[in-house]
């Protein structure tokens, strides 16, 4: 938030599981400092594998980066231990098990910010709670008792506590109600506006298109297309296949658009 976002370059990233099964194969993508990009694609497209390839694997996990490289502000960082990546400023919000359910919300945040000085910690806390005011009401609850949306907020808040330079979010909206998603999207935009680089995996192409400057479409472990929503819209086939009708002309909400031609969901958030 205060820290300037880092630039991320991924070149020909190949992630394999158990040495053989391919998660992603030769994916390249770039997210400039302070940009927000989104990865979209069907189930099993390799979206999560891409994020994992950037954030790293644990030594005993079945997955590994087989080839390619990940650069953070030009520095080659792939192959580093997960915790080391975290200390370099890469914060990950995984799809599942995203909070420590046996810790209180306050402890979740304290853990994430434990490398900060006292003063920095206080500032971080204030900033994070300003973005996620709901979190403050739950500080003393065990995170395991929170709803899905509340967990997502706590997860994002924890990720931000450590003052990252790159935020990776695996599935922002999955399983959450539209109202919650709108509020989360709003928060994410606010975070990004503060200068943090964000790469989000999002199954809902309409939401992804609203959030991100650039979209990366993955399928079968490979990069199928990349570009702004505008550019992709002109590639009719791809827009129809991967983005549904969301960008191709019809909105996500049954095709109804607001007066200014933007999908209704965007306006709903703004009025919320």
């Amino acid at each position: 938030m205060v820290t300037a976002g880092a630039g991320l370059q991924v070149r020909e990233l190949t992630v394999v599981y158990h040495h053989v099964a391919t998660g992603v194969n030769g994916v390249s993508l770039t997210v400039g400092p302070g940009e927000m990009a989104a990865i979209v694609g069907p189930n099993g497209a390799g979206k999560t594998s891409t994020l994992r390839g950037i954030a790293g694997f644990l030594p005993r996990e079945s997955g590994a980066v087989k080839s390619g490289e990940v650069r953070l502000d030009g520095r080659r960082v792939n192959g580093l231990p997960v915790a080391r990546m975290a200390r370099l400023g890469v914060a990950m919000v995984p799809e599942r098990d995203k909070v420590f359910t046996e810790l209180t919300v306050a402890e979740n945040l304290r853990l994430a910010g434990r490398r900060l000085s006292k003063g920095e910690f206080r500032t971080s806390m204030e900033q994070v709670l300003a973005v996620f005011p709901l979190v403050e009401q739950h500080l003393e609850r065990l995170a395991g008792y929170l709803s899905g949306g509340e967990r997502q907020m706590v997860a994002l808040a924890s990720a931000l506590m450590g003052r990252p330079r790159l935020l990776l979010v695996d599935e922002l909206s999955q399983g959450l109600s539209p109202g919650v998603v709108a509020s989360l999207a709003d928060s994410l935009r606010q975070i990004n506006a503060g200068g943090l680089t964000v790469l989000v995996v999002e199954q809902n192409p309409a939401l992804a298109a609203e959030l991100a400057e650039r979209l990366y479409i993955l399928d079968g472990g490979r990069l199928v297309a990349a570009g702004t929503a505008e550019e992709l819209r002109h590639q009719g086939e791809i827009a129809r296949t991967y983005l549904g009708v969301a960008i191709g002309g019809l909105g996500a909400n049954g095709g109804r658009h607001g007066d200014d031609g933007r999908p209704l969901s965007v306006q709903a958030e703004e009025s919320a």
Binding site: E12, N25, K66
Partner: peptide, 13 residues
């Protein structure tokens, strides 16, 4: 030098 599929890829890099 790994499985046939990835050999080509590694050549590119």
């Amino acid at each position: 030098g790994a499985s046939p599929g990835s050999a080509a890829k590694q050549g590119v890099i």
